[in-house]
Design a protein around this nucleic acid. Structure first.
Lengths: 145, 145, 145, 145
DNA sequence: GTGGTCTAGACCACG
DNA sequence: GTGGTCTAGACCACC
């Protein structure tokens, strides 16, 4: 339903776009064969350069999540949702692994890591708790002013 | 005991050096007033540009973890271990927070995140079991030619 | 007998249509003065934009392969089959030449190119054995709804 | 030894760069761990925009042929030559396959295809027979004016 | 010096 | 309207 990017994040914009889109398709916010927002549309809504969107969409093609419908736009690929879910799985695991490796280097015991993690997990749902600096795009276009 | 860096990581080398050193001091691998390896030594052992080491050491000075002993090199500061522990605490919390924010965007429920995390935590190798691509430096300096 | 197009090919649809039609006329699947399927018919059967068919047919006119029969549609021109055969000859030679140029840049010796080519030539399915993603149109028009 | 591109070709520049570089590595014109020409260098020598080169180099990274040496440039990856050879193999096969499919659609018999192919193969070595419009880059930089 | 990212704007082919 | 390619030029982090 919603593509969100945070221009102040240290993650590159195109990478955020790739991740967001992958997650959305994995959640079936866009379904197989459904057209996704056009490059220009996304570009305009998120105030991002078209080239940046193109770059993200291209990667999603390479991942087998999107396909080009020439002259019409880009659509979720035949088995796009599956692939997206698989890619998401990989991203999530990798992210946790990386974090664990770094944390273990800190000299903290696994038990300390576990307790800190669980404490922060239960704390609050920071799911865009602060929307400062975040720009989003709705699926149906009447939310934009 | 050991400074480890991974040149293929996406983290900058100087950042890895800062983190590693901070963690080591926090663990009291180097104690107050103890001399730390010289820039030249670290640079040679890790095959890293001296400038990169200088940069890291300067940051550690600014953090109040190291101090210059003129003519002798750099040593752990008066209250270096405390400060290092504090810095470490901040790094660890921040790291977990960041990870949580990203994971929540993936559309996975907190319960799924928790289970994946716990699974990977119990699985893994305690501390870089495989050292492929990782370069280290020992506390006693005669390991490297 | 059959116009086949592959919408997922990197060749533009109109170009595929032109080539296919040229080949069919060269093979005398449609003979001199014989009416070819109407724009509307082709468009519907192949699920292609009518404009695309129009564009292809116009090119075939320019090539002297088709002519308009006002009020009736388009037919193979007086000397259409000859011209089509000539055009086909040019296309085929050009195609092979292009391929050879590219392959020679790969650093493979001519002998390797030859053997690979012959191997693949003998292997393969004679004519689009698997029709996945390929859409066709029959000469007799009652196959499509 | 030589990167060659033809700006008048219908193949995109970045694709030509990818192919050329892949072929060169496969032929061991650049060897494992060896630095390849920098983005700016290639860009200048071939009179191509740096972004275009970046795009090509990025793809080569994704293919596992090149790796970044941060601050130093890009080098052939550990098993880069193998991978390059494998990629080349795929490119070559695919190219021939595509050609065969198209030729078979022309209505020509396999025997005719074979004879035409062999004739053109033996004809001449069009390996850059005409250098009009082709721009190249030497390995050692003293050839450029 | 190196690569990485982003913007701005242009032109093209396709449907 | 759509995506694809390319250029030009800027700024950044890293070594």
């Amino acid at each position: 339903m919603l593509i969100q990017i945070d221009p102040s994040s240290d993650r590159p914009l195109y990478e955020q776009l790739i991740r967001q889109m992958t997650f959305l398709v994995a959640q079936r916010a866009y379904r197989e064969h459904e057209l996704v927002p056009s490059v220009r549309e996304v570009s305009k809504s998120l105030a991002v350069n078209p080239n940046t969107v193109v770059r993200a969409y291209r990667q999603l093609q390479d991942d087998g999540i999107l396909v080009v419908r020439r002259g019409m736009g880009m659509a979720v690929a035949e088995t796009g949702c599956e692939r997206a879910a698989a890619v998401r799985e990989g991203i999530v695991s990798q992210r946790i692994q990386d974090t664990l490796v770094e944390l273990r280097q800190s000299g903290l015991a696994d038990s300390e890591i576990r307790s800190t993690f669980l404490r922060l997990l239960d704390n609050g749902s920071p799911l865009a708790a602060d929307t400062n600096g975040t720009r989003g795009i709705q699926k149906s276009e009447e939310t934009q002013s």
